[in-house]
Design a protein around this nucleic acid. Structure first.
Length: 624
DNA sequence: TTAGGGTTAG
């Protein structure tokens, strides 16, 4: 009987839970001495929970059994379970086994279980395991993932012979904590580098905001005859995407083809992404369409690319296709879809997707929440935007910016300012985008003094350097309230070079406020900056005409002709049930022209009657 | 030990 059982247990068994129980009972009742042999079978991934039950019942399990349970839990990413078993074994006075240490440290690293990991380190020291490179490497990894690079470095310094693996581990730790200098120091010190060393170092530069240095390193890697693998190429492709460097991107794509990595899903996604970010949207789509399999990341990347390139309709179409193929969208997908909806400003589509997202409870995350409230605000539903904002569990600077900007573009200047003040009280640091929203609010509300105050506080109080966009807001602010001289003074004192937006703003304000002198001055600049924009010539010509200075108006028209500037017609268009209707000012070609004008007249009458704020419920603004 | 996708403004 014993012999038969032993030989049975020595062969590979694939037992279902019932058979397992029967065998277990048989062994316990007839041959308890061969129980350890049985444990070997029970601690397999498929039967790990059963092993766990047995483990709980044994007063002092042997360390081999403990080790296999821990390593299986760890491999299955059931880190919490692995840690529980480890400490439970410790309290049952089972001695820590050498081979358990890397697994348990991996679990502690994954969960950022700092205290537990340190205890494992202490136990390893007591058992004298810490002079082993395997365990030292696991410790470096653990401390790195916990963000304690000093501890990681201390362990590293203890290693006598520096194999590539612990070095790579340390590089990747420095890389994740953004310490590119230390990472590079370790990298340069290595006698023998592996592909992983290069990859970690290159991706470090990619993430730390120095992609150019990443490319240089990639070049050096080739000079030193180190063969890149798919991870290298993916990283370098993402650098090219970031830089919008199509030339290098295409070279890397060639390497993908040469190394026959075309079928790798991640590589293909990276190639498609590279095209996308370099503006080659249709090439990206081609790569995407030719992929034999696509995961949610591939779909999301493509949808995001469409949204970022202003091709909202394509983004939404692709999203629909994705749903039809039963790929479950995640937060990343939805954030991009919302951005596409926001660009369209279509209330109908927006409400539909918005309800879908809120219904599934996706609205409280930072990315989706911000994108959702931005979309509602852009579609004019400011109440719903505010509700999303108030219900968000966590907010970051983008959430605040989206809400402040949303209130601003909906004409609710006071609410925008109030929210900004709350943002400051809540200790959030505003950035340049926040100030754009805030200044926009002042422009829409005609709040000149407030705008000046906020502009002055940018650098002084928040250490945000005004960009040309902020200056454009200020110029707009002065201009709209008729303070053209102040606008001009402001422009003269600007630290950045004024651009066409700024001079253009001043020029159009000059028509409204009949200021010929400043108009001429703006035009002088605009003739240099954008000599082919017909709008400027027409504007100045009209300013002269308004003042009865016909001769100069005519000269302007002649200058336009001389420079061969074409006047572009400003068409408006609207899409209704797959048909695009195009209109020119005053045109009467549309078959329903009369009705259309009736409705337009009605609308403008209504707009004049409606008080700008009456539709907004102020109670909702009470910050949560 | 190393790899791909996201929100705001202009």
């Amino acid at each position: 009987m014993e012999q038969r059982l032993v030989s049975l247990l020595q062969s590979p068994l694939n037992l279902n839970p019932n058979q397992l129980k029967q065998l277990h009972a048989l062994i316990i009742t007839s041959q308890p001495s061969i129980f350890p042999l049985f444990l070997k079978h029970v601690s397999a991934p498929a039967t790990i929970q059963y092993a766990r039950q047995i483990f709980d019942e044994i007063p002092q399990p042997d360390s081999l059994f403990c080790n296999s349970i821990i390593s299986i839990f760890s491999k299955l990413s059931l880190h919490q379970e692995a840690i529980k078993v480890f400490f439970s074994a410790h309290f049952k006075r089972t001695k820590l086994a050498f081979f358990s240490v890397p697994s348990i440290l991996k679990s502690c690293a994954s969960l950022a279980a700092s205290a537990e990991g340190k205890q494992v380190h202490a136990l390893s020291l007591i058992r004298g395991f810490c002079s082993n490179v395997y365990i030292q490497t696991a410790l470096i990894d653990f401390y790195s993932k916990n963000g304690d690079m000093d501890a990681a470095k201390r362990v590293f310094d203890e290693i006598s012979v520096k194999d590539p693996v612990p070095c790579n581990c340390l590089i990747s730790g420095y890389s994740k904590s953004g310490n590119v200098l230390e990472a590079r120091r370790v990298f340069e010190m290595m006698q023998l580098r592996t592909v992983a060393s290069w990859n970690s170092m290159i991706s470090c530069y990619a993430h730390v905001g120095d992609p150019i240095e990443g490319l240089r390193l990639f070049e050096r890697m080739q000079n030193e005859k180190e063969k890149p693998n798919e991870m290298t190429l993916v990283t370098v492709l993402s650098i090219c995407a970031k830089l919008g460097d199509l030339r290098t991107g295409l070279k890397v794509k060639e390497m993908v083809d040469v190394h026959d990595l075309r079928t790798n899903l991640i590589v293909r996604t990276a190639v498609s992404e590279m095209y996308m970010k370099c503006g080659a949207v249709d090439e990206a789509r081609k790569v995407f369409d030719e992929m034999s399999q696509r995961d949610v990341i591939a779909w999301s990347a493509m949808i995001a690319g469409y949204a970022q390139n202003g091709r909202s309709n394509d983004a939404l179409e692709l999203f629909e296709k994705m749903c039809l193929e039963n790929i479950e969208p995640n937060e990343v997908t939805l954030a991009s879809v919302l951005s596409a909806c926001a660009q369209l400003g279509s209330v109908e589509v927006g409400e539909q997707i918005g309800s879908y997202i809120e219904g599934r409870g996706f609205a409280s995350g930072v990315y989706v929440g911000s994108a959702l409230l931005d979309m509602y605000a852009k579609c004019g539903n400011i109440k719903r935007a505010r509700r999303v904002f108030d219900n968000m569990k966590h907010r970051d600077v983008v959430s605040w910016n989206s809400m402040i900007g949303g209130l601003a573009i909906n004409g609710l200047a006071d609410d925008a300012i109030e929210l900004y003040e709350k943002m400051i009280r809540d200790q959030f640091k505003p950035n340049d985008v926040t100030l754009i929203g805030l200044l926009t609010a002042c422009v829409h509300g005609g709040l000149v003094e407030a705008g000046i105050r906020f502009f002055d506080s940018m650098q002084k109080e928040h250490n945000v350097t005004p960009k040309v966009e902020h200056c454009a807001c200020m110029v707009d602010l002065y201009c709209r309230s008729g303070r053209l001289e102040d606008a001009y003074k402001f422009i003269s004192k600007m630290e950045t070079e004024p651009n066409v937006v700024i001079w253009g703003t001043l020029l159009s304000a000059c028509r409204v406020h009949s200021n010929i002198e400043l108009a001429q001055c703006s035009m002088e600049k605009l003739l240099v900056l954008e000599p082919h924009n017909s709008a400027n010539y027409v504007l100045l010509s009209n300013i002269y005409a308004d003042a009865g200075r016909w001769e100069e108006a005519r000269k302007m028209r002649n200058l336009m002709r001389k420079k061969d500037v074409q006047k572009l017609a400003g068409y408006s268009w609207i899409e209704l049930e797959d048909t695009v209707h195009k209109f020119l000012v005053g045109d009467t070609f549309h078959p329903s022209s009369d009705e259309i004008y009736d409705i337009v007249d009605g609308l403008s009458l209504q707009l004049k009657l409606v008080d700008k704020n009456s539709d907004y419920d102020l109670e909702l603004c009470e910050a949560s």
